[in-house]
């Protein structure tokens, strides 16, 4: 009994490094991350969703996106928590898990200079969330401000499937 307890404690002591490496932990979104992200997904239809743990409409939309991802394995789904810092890795992760988005490519604003991060993505964006950017195979970006209609996302993904034929 006591030995188990000790083992648990030792495990606890090694947790910080273990946590960071665990899948599903959002990656820090920093200066230059946006260009890297665009580059990594070039040629693939990609849905990028900006959200935050304190945003009411986001809580409603997130599970819908989880279902969208399940239904559209051909679309790369990326989430970026853009709630201004301090961001809470655990809360962020648990909401993504609950929404069925644990296996999406998840990021979290990792720089307090959020103005600069937003400017790199879209100079016109003032930080309102949720916000969704649909990046087509040819790189065309369609921005949806506020909660997206899943029907619109379905329509867009259909055009992407057609474009690949």
């Amino acid at each position: 009994m006591k030995r188990h307890f000790l083992a648990a404690l030792i495990l606890l002591a090694t947790l910080p490094s273990g946590l960071a490496a665990e899948a599903g932990t959002p990656k820090p979104f920093e200066r230059g991350s946006w260009q890297k992200l665009l580059h990594a997904h070039a040629g693939h239809p990609t849905l990028v969703h900006f959200w935050g743990v304190t945003c009411g409409p986001c809580k409603v939309e997130l599970p819908q996106l989880g279902r969208f991802m399940k239904d559209h394995p051909d679309i790369d789904v990326v989430t970026i928590s853009a709630d201004l810092v301090p961001n809470l890795p655990e809360a962020t992760r648990s909401m993504l898990d609950g929404a069925g988005l644990a296996s999406a490519e998840n990021w979290m604003f990792g720089d307090g200079f959020a103005e600069r991060l937003r400017f790199e993505i879209d100079p016109a964006w003032q930080g309102d969330i949720p916000r969704t950017m649909l990046i087509a195979r040819d790189g065309t970006i369609t921005t949806i401000e506020g909660s997206a209609e899943i029907a619109d996302l379905d329509k867009w993904s259909a055009t992407q499937a057609a474009a690949s034929r």
């Binding site: 006591k2 000790l6 404690l9 030792i10 606890l12 002591a13 910080p16 201004l84 810092v85 301090p86 961001n87 809470l88 890795p89 990792g110 720089d111 307090g112 200079f113």
Partner: peptide
């Protein structure tokens, strides 16, 4: 005795862990 040593080590490590997490969350804005 072993338990006490480990517990002490844990106690010593915990505030640093907490601090590290805090600074990870806050350092970028403050």
């Amino acid at each position: 005795a072993g338990w006490i040593v480990l517990a002490t080590a844990m106690l010593a490590a915990l505030p640093n862990l907490a601090k590290a997490q805090m600074s990870h969350q806050h350092a970028s804005e403050a």
